[in-house]
Nucleic acid binder design. Structure first.
Length: 422
RNA sequence: GGAGGGGUCGCAUAGUUGGUCUAGUGCGCGCGUCUCGAAAACGCGUACGGGUGUGAGCUCGUCGUGGGUUCGAAUCCCACCCCCUCCGCCA
């Protein structure tokens, strides 16, 4: 959520940001009008309440019954007006907040223009992709063939977009999760094991609601929502807190399964394990001062790349254009790994600086100096990495002519083998 | 799931027959006096958000959350959340 003062003082900046994202700019004027209306009502309303407060005190001290009754009657009249204005301001407030909740974050000036993913910019490609002439089986063939992935039984249990990992397949996933957690812990992130189910309010704080309601699973009877990413519980770690300046930056890393309904991706990526309703992910997260967030983002990008480099997988770095930026992001880099069997780049990480957007929703602030006013902090998040797509890359990139899979060096101890399927 | 107790301004507490509570006190913290310096003592100050004003300031809201009763609610009523104790069940 933006600061309302930005709409008051710099409406053109928001209009320009919305235009760069390809969104309707009329909402800016709607919000400004609502804001002015709200303040106008408040001025009258609060004057009436001030009167009521002082009069009520006076009434309490009155001894003369007639005088007292007259004053009470007068206050009843005032209260009618107060009730009407209260209702009005609540209505305006509600509309105002709903509109503001729908306004995405503003791209940084450094973010390239562009309307869609087609205009994202490839910053660099790292590592050697396999020779296209190699006869690499896609993971949806080699996985079942080696007894690593069981699609049929997954679907029988839970429907489409579910699968069972088996034997070395299950172990590879567990190895990746544990190795990634340790990898980031060694680079200064504090490991967190959060709840996988959170309250609805957490979804609002993290910016999942209201926009992505259709993508979230939740309990029909109780206030339980399944996390679509560890970003949600991590964002909520410090809700309603004022952090001392010396506690920043805070770096967290967490593993969670991620639950997504994928209503918006119906029909796409249905083959294999590219896009399940449940998948494992290790997430990096940072709370920083506004001054530090740019450097923190660069460092987080380096951390994400380091995972792929350590695994020896060829990847590329994309900078998202303004039109493809996520709802809460000011700047985003995607990491894509090359899957030679699928024959495509797979997104395994999206690394973003959310600025103060989430912090304002979640009321997370810090005090620059003792005694100074508390200001919103910055939040950054990035996958480190999404596990199934990394597994796809391993099964395909490290596939050998005899159909076995070479295990990346860094995973051999945890997998307990140098080769899978041998 | 059942029974009972409880959530107050960083921490600890007072306040629950509705009205000087504009929430008291202690601790902690900050500033000051004193001192060569410090401790102690003493004095002053110490929540967050909103509206308004150039400004000092004025003002509204917040005593777990949301409603309600009332001229007036920390205090009464309802719902919900959370914590503690005991019982039951259970990985």
């Amino acid at each position: 959520m933006h600061d309302i003062r930005t709409f008051r003082d710099h409406p053109d900046a928001i209009r320009r940001a919305l235009a760069r994202r390809g969104e309707d700019v009329d909402v800016v004027d709607e919000i400004r009008t609502l804001d002015e209306e709200r303040r106008a009502i408040l001025t009258e309303l609060e004057a009436l309440k001030a009167t009521r407060n002082t009069e009520s005190k006076r009434i309490g001290a009155m001894r003369d019954a007639a005088e007292r009754n007259a004053a009470i009657a007068a206050m009843r009249e005032v209260n009618l007006r107060i009730d009407a204005l209260d209702a009005r301001v609540a209505e305006v407030d509600g509309t105002l907040h709903a509109k503001m909740n729908g306004v995405p974050n503003s791209p940084l000036d450094s973010v390239p223009d562009g309307a869609s993913a087609a205009e994202n910019v490839v910053l660099r490609e790292v590592g050697q992709r396999r020779d296209p002439a190699d006869d690499v089986q896609p993971h949806w063939d080699i996985g079942p063939a080696l007894g690593l992935i069981d699609f049929e039984r997954g679907v029988r249990m839970s429907g489409s977009r579910f699968y069972v990992l088996r034997g070395a397949g299950a172990r590879l996933q567990r190895a990746l999760v544990q190795w990634m957690l340790d990898f980031h812990a060694d680079r200064g992130y504090v490991e967190i094991a959060p709840p996988y189910i959170v309250r609805e309010a957490c979804m609002w704080h993290a910016g999942q609601l209201p926009k992505f309601r259709d993508n979230l699973y939740h309990d029909a009877e109780e206030d339980f929502w399944l996390v679509p990413t560890a970003e949600v519980p991590l964002t909520n770690m410090h809700v309603d807190e004022i952090l001392p300046a010396e506690s920043l930056p805070i770096h967290y890393v967490a593993y969670t399964p991620c639950f997504r309904r994928e209503k918006m991706s119906a029909g796409s990526d249905v083959r294999g394990i590219k896009r399940g309703h449940q998948f494992d992910k290790v997430e990096m997260f940072k709370f920083t001062t506004p001054e530090d967030s740019a450097d923190a983002l660069a460092a987080m990008l380096a951390d994400g790349e380091a995972v792929l480099a350590a695994l020896g997988l060829p990847y590329r770095v994309l900078q998202l254009c303004a039109g493809d930026l996520g709802f809460g992001s000011t700047v985003t880099y995607d990491l894509e790994v090359w899957a030679p069997g699928c024959g495509e780049w797979l997104e395994v990480s999206s690394i973003s600086d959310f600025g103060s957007f989430q912090a304002r929703r979640a009321n997370i602030r810090y005090r620059p100096e003792p005694g100074a006013a508390a200001v919103p902090i910055h939040t950054l998040n990035g996958s480190g990495l999404g596990v199934p797509r990394v597994m796809i890359a391993i099964l395909e990139h490290y596939q050998q002519p005899d159909g076995t899979i070479r295990v990346p060096d860094v995973l051999r101890d945890r997998v307990g083998a140098d080769v899978i399927g041998g």
